[in-house]
Design a binder for these strands. Structure first.
Lengths: 333, 333
DNA sequence: GTGAAAGCGCTAACAC
DNA sequence: GTGTTAGCGCTTTCAC
């Protein structure tokens, strides 16, 4: 690999001069600059990031922690974040982590070894000490799309509970009284969405019944299918179902299809997240849209400001959500 | 950040000794080792990767180049590769690139700046000089799931043409004679799958008709929907359609649904890739399964061997595919 | 067994 | 304007 020294030797100048040219500093005679630039081009010189970040004590890299089983919503989110970060001059390094203590600790070590300028968490950690360890190192952290109790980190998300409430109220408005739910177990949004569902029910004078709520282990279509199947075997059969994510909803629709039930004629199905394909399914999914682009952009923006130490905002950035009514829900009748 | 020097000072030994302990080298008295290990634990010391890779002239990092619009198939693939690479002791760094010349060149610069130990391409580049530049630097490259004409790089993929031929023959076997195709424009697999479709048709004595082939700009569900809609407006209407990816198939099913046509009763739809959700759709998708796990594992394995300079194989690793018959296709009748 | 010293590629003070 | 020098954190000879 050509280094700054090689260029310097050939050009008959010192390494510092080459450095100045490469980093577009002033104080270099135009003709020398020209000569060096030509050499850089010719030899295909590219500065070594490791060496640079060592002396600068900055890596221009932000780490993004994400579940190894990331779903389509998270996938869209991190693409947006990556793009915004890049246009702010940062590199992005991904850290996939499993929902288990050991994997989280390994992730922490790797995070620390990289000397990151900042860390964005798209994955909620099971261990609370993860966040503590991080804050001790005084490295900027932004959480998206969730927050963490008692943590000073900035976060970006919607009001999950209100959104789940709106989703459930949509079903109630359509005349449904028996409303089931396919609910996740992990991550705080599961509890928040469950709370919203419950609040909507109770707000309408309906009682919350555990018999209509089926817990599933992951947010995959496969588990949505299993969950819906379980729900259908319960004594009390709902006329509408709220799935806590679109992928769960896709699986739920599948289970209904297998049972010979039509969506939405025989059962309304409501999703959450509005992932890309939801609009292209048959039937298309009624769901809650998170303003994912805006959220990703804001996450990247906060991180950039935090790194530049010019962030004047604080706390959580709460975004609005939107009820997107499509074909998978209809009035009871 | 605690460095090796800090530890050394406190422990009253030299930095070299600490290095030996951290890197599990021998020649350190057990008691000193103990003392240092305790300190490492206590101070939360984590070696600085940049400094390490600088002296070692190795980064233990492999770059994975992937389209910024990566689909679910690619998403599964890169997760597998990341996991396998990690268990081989390598870090993974992702490089998202757009299908445009400028983005590719920027990607190349970034790739070079990282001093990667190897590069895995999950994205076919438009510019041929991309590969040339790379091979000049003598850095190991593995292509998956495609190969590149006249390039010595190792590659891992299926026989795309044979697979597309099998897909089309499945439809022919079901009695279909009017078989449409929703075809992509980018990447070599598009041409290969088109060739397979054509070969199957001609092998059955059917003629290839451009009027039954609709080209689309991306492999998204949105474009599949558009493509199918276009196909339905053509004078010659097929009874079955081969979509070049599952996501295209999802969109195609949607367009049929909107047109009031049932799948598979009124039109059979065939996908390709067998992404996760294909089995959970309603109807579930008949498709071609690429042995994605095995392919990802092999890609990582080849890369590891290449880096260790102990690769004894060469050329392309061709994997078998599998026709997965589900609900979206049925006999013409 | 352990330490001293050199050096990886780069940047930033400081001289000149 | 440009060169010299020191040093970022680490590993690795080479002495001892």
């Amino acid at each position: 690999m050509t280094s700054i020294k090689d260029i310097a030797k050939i050009a008959g100048v010192s390494p510092s001069t080459v450095s100045r040219v490469v980093n577009e500093k002033k104080y270099v005679k135009p003709e020398i600059r020209e000569r060096i630039m030509a050499l850089v081009e010719e030899l295909g010189y590219v500065p070594n990031n490791a060496a640079r970040s060592m002396v600068l004590k900055r890596t221009f890299t932000v780490g993004v922690v994400i579940p190894d089983t990331f779903n389509m919503f998270q996938r869209q989110l991190f693409s947006i974040i990556e793009r915004c970060l890049e246009s702010n001059g940062f590199r992005t390094m991904f850290f996939f982590v499993k929902w288990e203590s050991e994997s989280e600790m390994k992730c922490l070590r790797r995070l620390l070894a990289e000397n990151l300028d900042g860390i964005i968490m798209i994955h909620e950690m099971a261990r609370p000490d993860f966040y503590e360890e991080l804050s001790q190192r005084s490295i900027p952290v932004v959480l998206c799309p969730f927050s963490h109790e008692g943590l000073s980190s900035r976060s970006v998300h919607i009001d999950e509970e209100a959104a789940a409430r709106a989703a459930t109220e949509h079903l109630i408005t359509l005349g449904h009284r028996e409303i089931g739910m396919v609910a996740g177990l992990h991550f705080s949004f599961a509890a928040q969405r469950t709370a919203g569902y419950r609040a909507a029910l109770e707000g309408a004078g309906l009682s919350y019944d555990e018999g209509l709520v089926v817990p599933v282990g992951s947010y995959s279509a496969a588990d949505g299918r299993l969950g819906m199947r379980a729900l259908l075997s319960r004594p009390r059969r709902p006329t509408a179902v709220f799935a806590q994510t679109d992928e769960l909803a896709i699986g739920a629709v599948r289970a209904l299809y297998e049972a010979g039930l039509r969506v939405p004629q025989d059962m309304s199905v409501m999703g959450f997240d509005d992932i890309d394909i939801s609009a292209h399914l048959s039937p298309s999914l009624t769901t809650i849209r998170q303003p994912i682009f805006e959220m990703g952009r804001e996450t990247a923006a906060i991180m950039s400001r935090l790194i530049a130490e010019e962030d004047e905002t604080e706390g959580a950035a709460i975004f609005g959500f939107e009820l997107v009514v499509r074909e998978s829900t209809q009035a009871l009748g």
